[in-house]
Amino acid sequence: MMSKNRADAPVLLEARGVCKYFGGLKAIENVDMTIRKGDVFGIIGPNGAGKTTFFNICTGVFAPTKGEILLHGENIAGLTPEEIARKRMARTFQNIQLFKFMSVLENVQIGCHINTKTRMFDAVFQTKTYKKDEQYIAERSMDILQKIGLEEFAEMKAGNLPYGSQRKVEIARALALDPEILLLDEPAAGMNPNETMELREFILQLNEAGYTIVVIEHDMKFIMNSCNHILVLNFGQKIFEGAPEQVKANHDVQVAYFGKGIIARG
């Protein structure tokens, strides 16, 4: 799964001195990060550490107060989410944001948006472009649903699915975009242990298939077993970065998680 020498892989996504302040609240303070091609990169930290905020900065929901986000060396800080999606970075949301009243299949079909070209004219006259696009969309979405094990729910309204499956629909939808890098915000939340295990398998399969994965998770077992590199945030700051074994052994991380000692805010 992970290359023997992580340092040899090319850099894909990089954060340099990224800060995000909400008024007086320093949600992210001077965070550096390097994600390499082929990584399963974990981001952990206690509640309110700024993990989701960091994802939001990477995907264009927020512009950073300071700092740069480099994708393939190009600064994407301040671009809109839709521009960043076109650069093949896809994400899921911690608070599930499905198109609830569309079918599961339609949810995934929207993920194909950037890879299709149909314009109003094509749609009205059902030109070759339209037919080619619709065929591509139909095949690709069914294919993804099969891979993720949701094909029997294809026609169901997405909002009718149980929680765990809704998370899967979000991943399926993000995959339809054919991303190079996939950001998952607590993908296992609301899943039972069995589902969590299946999800882990699935994520590792995706990684094998060449996707670079960034994942926020509270489930330590999940993180330790799937990631090759982990970033630990606490009160918006990076307190550690390294391989799973190093993270486990690190004193600061233990303090942050188990609350020994006092951690100064800011």
């Binding site: 995907t59 929901v61 809109t80 989410p81 839709e82 999606a85 076109r86 896809a90 994400r91 949301f93 944001q97 499905l98 198109f99 609830k100 009243f101 569309m102 929207i110 993920g111 948006h113 950037i114 939808r173 993000a174 339809a176 975009l177």
Partner: peptide, 13 residues
């Protein structure tokens, strides 16, 4: 349905 999700999938809203 969900404009933030649409944007994250590249729909130029």
């Amino acid at each position: 349905e969900e404009s933030n999700a649409a944007r994250s999938l590249g729909v130029e809203i």
